[in-house]
Every structure is written in C-alpha cells, then in structure tokens.
C-alpha cells in the first residue's frame, strides 16, 4: 500500500516534468524546477512512511511554549 503511494508520487513528478520541462527555458529555471520537485518527492515519500514525523506546527509550539501555556490557562478560565 505504501509503495503504491510512492509509485503515485513518482507518477505525479513524471507528469509534472513531462508537462513543464519542454516549456522551461534557461538552465537556472530547470535547476529550480528539478530541485523543488525532488525535494517535494522526497518529503512526500518520507511522510508516506513516517506520517508521525513532528511537523512545522510542533516546531512552532515548542518555540512559543510559554505564550501557548498562557493562552491555554486563559481558555480554561473562561470556559470553566
């Protein structure tokens, strides 16, 4: 099942490349396209196998922890 998802991602990348590559002019643009597409493909495959990987939200939660705590307490006061 998971490998089918990876196959799907690969097919998606292939479709994007087939559509965009002939139209793209300039080396820089081609490199940018390839770099972002490969990054997206890798991240997508990673998330297929490890969907529990801490995401950007957990990162922000950790960064703003004291402030988040404060709001949490305030919410409990109001609703309690």
């Amino acid at each position: 099942m998971k490998w089918t998802a990876v196959l799907g991602i690969a097919a998606l990348l292939a479709l994007m490349a087939a559509y965009e590559w002939p139209k793209t002019k300039g080396k820089k643009e081609k490199t940018a396209f390839a770099a972002i597409a490969v990054l997206g493909g890798l991240l997508a495959s990673w998330l297929v196998f490890y969907p529990e990987t801490p995401g950007p939200t957990q990162c922000l939660d950790a960064l703003y922890k004291p402030l988040v705590k404060m709001i949490e307490n305030l919410t409990q006061e109001r609703s309690g």
Binding site: L12, L13, M16, Y19, E20, K23, T24, K25, G26, K28, E29, K30, A32, F33, I36, A37, L39, G40, G41, L43, A44, L47, T53, G55, P56, T57
Partner: peptide
Amino acid sequence: GAAQWMNLSDYRPIVFPIGLLVTLSSMWVA
C-alpha cells in the same frame, strides 16, 4: 517570492512543484 528569491526570470516552471509542497504542508500541519 520564491522565483525572486532564486533570481529566476520566470516563475511559471516552479508553480507545480510548489503546489506539491503546498499539498504536503497541508497534510503535515496537524
């Protein structure tokens, strides 16, 4: 912003790859 950041002459090539990243980001945020 990304096209300007990378000094590209055209932003169209990176629309679909960034679309993929956007979809991933939506699955990953929560």
